[in-house]
Structure formats: C-alpha cells, structure tokens
Design a protein around this nucleic acid. Structure first.
Length: 889
DNA sequence: CTAGGGTTAG
C-alpha cells in the first residue's frame, strides 16, 4: 500500500503501465472486474485514461452493460476515443440503435468523429437497414474528408450491400483510391448475399485477375454464388483452389464447400468433404442434415441428428431442420418430441422456427397444434400467415383459410406466395370468382410481372373453363418459362383446342425450350381424347429420345393413352416394361381392363397390386367396381365394395355408391339397385339416379324410370346429361309436353347439350361426323350403303328400336333419324374407304345408343368386319355379331 | 472493415 501514497512521477508511470498491461491481458470477465475495482479504488473512475480500454474489454466479454456504466462515469466527455469505444462496444454486442443514439449525441455535443468512429456507425446502420441514416453517415464521412479511408470505404461498401443497394455499393468500391482483399471480399459477399450469383462470380474473377490472393473470406463468400449457378463446374474450380492453397482446414470454408455440393445434389462429394473434415462445428452438422433433407433423405437426416447429439449441442437451426424432416415424414410423434426439446432448450419465439413448427404440424395433420403455435406468436411474418393458410387449404378448410387471408390483407402481409397459394386453391376448387378476386389483388399489389403468379393464373383460368383469359395472360407475359408453356399447352388440350396445343408445342421448341415430362403429360391426353394412336406413338418416340421413359407418371399416361386408343395390348406392354409401378400405374391398368370389359383381368391385377404392397385408395376402388360393373361381375363388385370398407377402412364416397348402383342396375337388378339407393348413408345425387335411370332405359323398365326422372329433375343439377336422360324417358312415354318443358329449362339455365359426334381416322386423316350430317364427301355413297345394309339386316331379323328416337315425329322419320346417328355414318364411311376385312376403329364422344349397338353387331356379321367403337365410357369390340361388352354397357 | 447452416408456392 505504501507505493500508492507516493506522488513521485516515475511511480505513477509504473502504476499506469502495469494497469494497462493487466487490462490488455485480462482473459475473462472476472479478471476484468477485479482490475476495474482497483481502478475505482484508486479514484480513477472518472479518468479517461483507462475507461476506453475498459469499455472495449467489457464489450469483448459480451458485457455491454458494464461498458455503458464505465462510459457514464466519464460522460460528458469531449474525448473522441471514449465515444468511439462505446459506439464500437454497442455495435459489437448487437445494440445497434443504442450505438446510433450515441453517435447522434456526440454530434450534438460537437465532438468531431474521426476515422475510427465511422466503421462501427456504418455497421449499425447496415444492421438496422436504416437507409436514411446510412446516407447521412456517408455524407458526414465525405464532409470530414474521410472519403478515401480504406476501412471506412470497406464499411460503406458493406453497408450499401446490406441495404440491397448494390449499385451504390459498387459506386463506393469504384471510387476507392486503395483497395485490399477485404474490399473485394465485401463486394463479392454483397452480390452473393443478395442472390446475384453471376455478378458475385464476376467480381471474384476480377479480384483474381487483379492479383488478389483469395483468403477464407473470399472463398466463403463466393461459394454460395457457385451453388446458385446452373453448373457445378465453377464450384469445382474453387474447390481445387481451396485444396491448392490449403484453405480446406478452415471450418467455414469446408462448410461452404459442403453446402455448395448439396445445392447440386452431389451427395457423394458432400459426404467426402464432411468425412475428411478435421474440425467440424455445429454448422457442419446442420449443413449435412439439411442437405440430406433437401435430397428428401429425411430418415437419414434424422439418423444423422442422432449421431450429432452425442458430440454437439444442437442449436435452433439443427432443431428446425429436423422439424422440417418430421413434417415431410408426417412423423407427428417425433415432431412433438423435438418441439418439446426445443422448448426445454429455451428456443422460443424465433419467427422462422415457429413458421417451421406451423408447417410441420399441418403436414402431420394436427391443425390445432399448428394454430396454437400461430396464435401465440408475437411477431408473425408473411411466411407464418402463408403456412397456416396453406395448412387449412391442405385439409379442405377453405372458409377458415379465406377468413385468415382477409385478416392477413389488413395486416398487409400478403406476398406473392400468398397469391400463388390462393390461386392454386381457386384452381382446385374451380372457383372462378375467388380466382378473379385474387387476380385483382395481384394487380393491386403489383405482382403481375411475377412469372410464377402468371403461370398460376393461366392454370386457374383454364381449370375454371376460362381458356380465353388464360390466353390473354399468356400473351401479356413478357417471358415464358417451361412451366408457362406446359401450363398453356395443357390448358389448350384440356379445353379441346388440340390444334393450338400442337402449334404451341412447336412454338415452344422454336424458342429453344425442350419439352419435359410435364409437357408430355400435358399433350398425351390429346392423343387419348382423339384416340390418335399415330400421334401417340410419335410422342412415345419423343419420350425415348428425351429419356423420360423411366418417369413413372409418363409411363402411366402412356398406359392410359394406348388403352384409350384401342390398343390394350400396347398398354400392357408399357405396363410390363415399367420398373417402378405406383398406385396410379395399377389403377390406370385396372381402369383399362374395365373399359374393355376384361373384369376378370382387372380383378387379377387388383390382387397383384395388393400382393406387391401397394395400398389401394378411393380411386383404385372406383376403377375395380367400374370394371366389375362393365363385365357383369356383380358378386365380385360387391365384394370389392365391402373390402374397401372392411380391409382398408376407406369411407365410400358418392362415386363408389354410384358405381355400385351402376353395377346392380346394368345387370338388370333394378329393384336391388333402388333398394341400395334408399339404404345409402349419403344423400343420393344426380350421378346415382342417373346410373339407375340409364339402366332402366336400356332394359325398358319404364315404371321405375319415370319415378327416377322426377327425382333427377328435383335436384336441379347443372349437368345436361341428366336432363337429356330424363327427357328421353318422357319421349319414350310419348309425353312430349314434358320433353319440351325439360328442353326449355335446359335453355333457361344457359346449359348446352353436347352435340353427338363420331370420328374415324383413314390414311392419316381424321373424318368427323355429326348426327344427321349431310355435308361431307361421299354422302350419297354412305347413304346408299346404309340403305343396302338396312335391307340385309331386315332379312336377318332386325327391327329398329324406336325408343332411341327422342323427337316427336312419324315412325318413318324416326327410322331415318336413327340411320343418321353419327357412329353409323362413320362406320359406313369406313367400310367404303378401306379394303374388305380391315378392322375399323370408331370414336364417339357420347354413349353409343342401344339401337346403334344392335346395328353395329349386325354390320360386323354381315360385312365380316371387326369394329372397335370407343364411346364416352368404354370400348366395344364387335365381331361376328357379338360385342365384347356382353351387352353390359 | 469482410465469410458458412433453417420455413411457405406455379
């Protein structure tokens, strides 16, 4: 203690320098506090001699409160060093607005900042994205004549980059008289962080040409940009450099490489990087786990998490990655467990983490838990709203979703993703009005140049039957990507404009875009709609050339195409060649068998599917019951219906009941079918009564038919088909007043009856015939031939079934009308234009009428021709007077 | 003064 009492100059000198030394070497908070208390004991608390160092040291140990208390002891002060210290201390501890507050305060007190003041101030502006303040600070720098300072320049480049103002950042960079590796790194990372991958790489290459030796920062900044490019090449070049100059021992660099390889789905390269890392940290593990998740290897990523837990404490990012994997696996139990773990680790109220929780719970089907997370969130961003709304949409809770959307609008949190989601919901619901409203929002919010939104709008209008609006958007768009083309082509095909669809495919190719699997899937339905086998085969060739033959959905579409084109054998070949078969593959094959009346084969396929471990769903059961129904396999069909409920626990939907009604009534069990309808737990709709009615008509059960017609009319359906059916019944009964009444009500509703037409392809040309058509080549010859056939049929015992004529006219005229049915015209035309014995293939958009069915049987016998007719429902193969449908049609 | 890992959609 003696030494402190001396007032000797030299002793003071020794004292100060030893305290200074002690301060510099303090390596933890405890030591620092000890030295601090000595300083206070000496009465030097108000002195500026040690306070700057103390402030900085406390900041270093993450104790900004102590930094502040030191500063307050010396304040007010005009010593710039004290101000610099406190501003830097606060900035480094994340107290940015406090730091800026001190900067403002020092300016007010007319303390002149120096070159050490600005880097931290610029940092704080950057962190707060306070562009206004940033500009003021930049001006202050220039006013002070510090514009050419290297460190300040670097800080300003960084600041503008973080504002997203890359042009401004570049301007500062270009104006710098002196640049070092940090300047280049900052610019590279600025471009990289804002997603300007090419620009980041350009600057990196410029740095290399300028003779800059890349360091860890350079590499870590450029690697994310490499990951964003289309080719892995650039990333590999950087990887080589890393090995060459020995940067791979840096954990951040290795993590960057790891992440880059995962962006290209290069699992093996990524895994090698990870395995060869000498030092790994939490980020390394997170990158690995996340990478596996990105490659949809969710189970593996959870296993990695288990391995990691033994070595490292998982952080919030680890937890959220795992939660994400749980969501994809629909593993609610593990998801809940991780959520608990997250709470226990004290990670709550992180917006991104909560967003992922919302998504995880809704993916797992626990909407209540989703909503609970959403409700307790303090700070919700757009993603939070989008995720919860998406959850409601996924589970069909449209009202709740739309309700939240309205609140979200008030909160002005609607972004482009919200719009895409709502458009997709409008599409699924075919809700034109909702779609139009969203279109308005899109325009108001200025998202109408967003390509994804435009694609979604094209799809929405098309699925709502507004193809013209789809075309308008398509033409209005400045750029079209592959999805745009696929969407518009699919839209054309679905709306029946095949010519335009075909034209657009060619246009797409001339614009240099290769068709992909989705293009194929869009165009193939055209082939099966037209039964255009030739075009279908052409596309099949394309599929091989483009290498999509192993794509499962493409294979499925091919099976459907060939079956609907009348070549079940090729369908089967495609099916046999497929290495992977999913539920859709099997269902398509079963439906195909159904269409050809191959009920037994359909049942066999269904059993095979079950044996191969594929679980049938609602659609598969529709297919199998339908197949039984079209083959008269009543027992088997009913058994399938039971199996669906008992074995698979699937609640039958209205379409299954309709199939069963069809199954019973097609086989003539009209009263059983009627009983079944009355025992249904669901309210019978038009499809149910319609099935029964058409069967009544075929078997001539007028009594039930009349009763059912009344039921159908009560339902006020918007499907013209049912009105036509009912009107047909009244026509048979000769109740022409009722017939007229129904016609009127169809008109009043603005509905249109699909005009019947048939078509046939001869020598690469399609010939289309409407009912009663008179204006086609060879009309006279066709008419003559039909007359001759008529005579021959009469000899064989044929009598026209005039119940299929639905107009109030004379008997003779009725016969004429029947002869004018489009399928007969097509058949006669085919007979005239092909060599004897050639099989004919006719397509019809509606169901074949009973009389035509009979007539075609006769023709197949008299003319010795095999005639394949595809109507709206199925195939009929006529041969020697017999139809493959066994009259179950 | 500069660097790496997590969420929603067509």
């Amino acid at each position: 203690m003696k030494i402190f009492n001396t007032s000797h100059e030299a002793t003071h000198q020794i004292l100060y320098s030893s305290i200074k030394k002690a301060l510099s070497s303090a390596s933890n908070s405890k030591q620092l506090h000890k030295i601090h208390s000595i300083i206070l004991t000496l009465g030097l608390g108000k002195s500026v001699l040690f306070s700057g160092k103390l402030i900085s040291k406390y900041a270093q140990f993450k104790d900004p409160t102590s930094s502040l208390s030191v500063f307050h002891r010396v304040s007010p002060t005009s010593n710039v060093y004290q101000w610099n210290s406190i501003i830097r201390a606060l900035t480094h501890n994340g107290l940015f607005s406090k730091a800026l507050g001190f900067y403002t305060q020092m300016r007010k007190m007319d303390v002149l900042p120096d070159k050490y003041t600005f880097p931290s101030v610029a940092n704080s502006c950057a962190a707060l994205v306070d562009i206004e303040m940033g500009k003021v600070v930049h001006e202050n720098v220039l006013d002070m004549g510090l514009g050419s300072d290297l460190y300040i320049g670097n800080a300003l480049v960084d600041m503008y980059a973080r504002f997203g103002c890359l042009a401004e950042a570049l301007k500062v960079f270009d104006g710098m008289p002196e640049r070092d590796v940090v300047s280049w790194n900052t610019l590279i990372s600025g471009y990289s962080a804002n997603g300007y991958w090419e620009e980041a790489l350009d600057v990196y290459n410029m740095a290399r040409m300028a003779g800059i030796m890349p360091d860890c920062y350079t590499v870590s900044s450029v690697l994310p940009a490499c990951g964003g490019l289309v080719d892995v090449k650039e990333g590999e070049v950087v990887h080589c450099l890393v090995e060459k100059i020995g940067l791979h021992s840096d954990v951040v660099v290795s993590n960057g490489l790891l992440s880059m390889y995962f962006k290209f789905n290069r699992l093996l390269d990524a895994r090698r990087i990870f395995d060869e890392m000498v030092v790994r940290d939490t980020v390394s593990w997170n990158t690995l786990i996340c990478g596996y998740s990105q490659m949809e290897l969710f189970k593996e990523s959870i296993l990695l998490f288990m391995q990691m837990v033994n070595k490292f404490e998982p952080d919030l990012l680890t937890i959220t990655s795992i939660l994400c994997a749980c969501g994809h696996l629909h593993d609610l139990e593990f998801g809940k467990f991780v959520h608990e773990y997250m709470k226990r680790s004290g990670y709550e109220s992180d917006t991104t983490a909560d967003n992922i929780l919302i998504d995880m719970y809704s993916k797992c089907g626990d909407l209540l838990a989703s909503r609970e997370v959403f409700d307790r969130m303090i700070c919700r961003d757009s993603v939070s709203w989008n995720s919860i709304i998406n959850g409601y949409f996924q589970y069909g809770k449209y009202d709740e979703a739309v309700k939240l959307f309205r609140i979200m609008k008030i909160d002005s949190k609607v972004d482009s993703i919200t719009c895409v989601m709502l458009l997709s919901a409008s599409t699924q619901l075919a809700d034109k009005d909702l779609g139009k409203k969203i279109h308005c929002d899109v325009t108001k919010l200025g998202f109408d140049s967003d390509i994804i939104i435009n694609n979604a709008m094209i799809d929405m209008y098309a699925k709502c039957g507004q193809i013209n609006d789809s075309m308008k958007i398509f033409e209005y768009m400045k750029t079209h990507d592959r999805v745009t083309w696929n969407t518009i082509i699919t839209a054309c095909v679905q709306s029946g404009d095949f010519t335009l669809g075909w034209k657009l495919i060619h246009q797409m190719r001339t614009e240099g875009l290769r068709p992909d699997a989705a293009t194929i899937l869009g165009i193939l339905p055209m082939c099966f709609f037209l039964a255009a086998k030739r075009q279908g085969k052409e596309i099949h060739g394309c599929i091989f050339r483009l290498g999509f033959e192993t794509d499962v959905p493409v294979g499925n579409a091919l099976i459907e195409m060939y079956s609907k084109c009348g070549t079940l054998t090729i369908s089967l070949k495609v099916f046999d060649c497929m290495e992977v078969r999913d539920l859709v593959t099997w269902t398509t094959m079963i439906s195909a068998y159904g269409m050809y009346g191959e009920g037994k084969k359909a049942l066999r396929a269904f059993a095979e599917m079950e044996a191969s471990g594929v679980i049938p769903d609602h659609v598969a059961f529709v297919a199998i019951i339908y197949a039984c129904s079209h083959s008269g396999l009543v027992e088997e069909g009913l058994a399938s219906f039971d199996r669906m409920k008992k074995i698979y626990n699937l609640e039958p939907r209205i379409e299954h009941y309709a199939c069963v009604v069809d199954l019973l009534s097609r086989s003539g069990l009209i009263s059983k079918a009627e009983e079944f309808i009355y025992s249904m737990p669901l309210k019978p709709d038009a499809s149910i009564w319609g099935s029964l009615l058409s069967a009544c008509r075929s078997c001539g059960n007028i009594e039930v038919a009349q009763r059912v017609s009344e039921r159908i009319l009560e339902l006020n359906s918007n499907d013209t088909g049912y009105y036509v059916l009912a009107s047909n019944v009244y026509a048979i009964l000769g109740k022409w007043d009722q017939v007229r009444m129904i016609r009127k009500s169809i008109k009043a509703r603005g509905l249109k009856k699909d005009p019947g037409c048939s078509w046939i392809e001869i020598k690469r040309r399609l010939y289309v015939f409407g009912a009663g058509d008179k204006f086609f080549e060879q009309f006279d010859e066709v008419n003559k031939l039909l007359g001759i056939i008529s005579g021959l049929m009469a000899k064989e015992g044929y009598v026209a079934d005039l119940r299929y004529v639905l107009h109030d006219i004379e008997e003779d005229e009725k016969k004429d009308l029947l002869c004018g049915h489009s399928e007969r015209l097509a058949i006669a035309f085919g007979l005239l234009n092909t060599k004897p014995g050639t099989p004919l293939q006719i397509m019809k958009n509606l169901r074949v009428c009973g009389d035509c069915h009979t007539v075609t049987k006769y023709i197949s016998m008299i003319m010795q021709r095999e005639i394949l007719v595809r109507d709206a429902n199925r195939f009929h193969n006529f041969k020697d007077g017999i139809c493959s449908c066994g009259d179950h049609w």
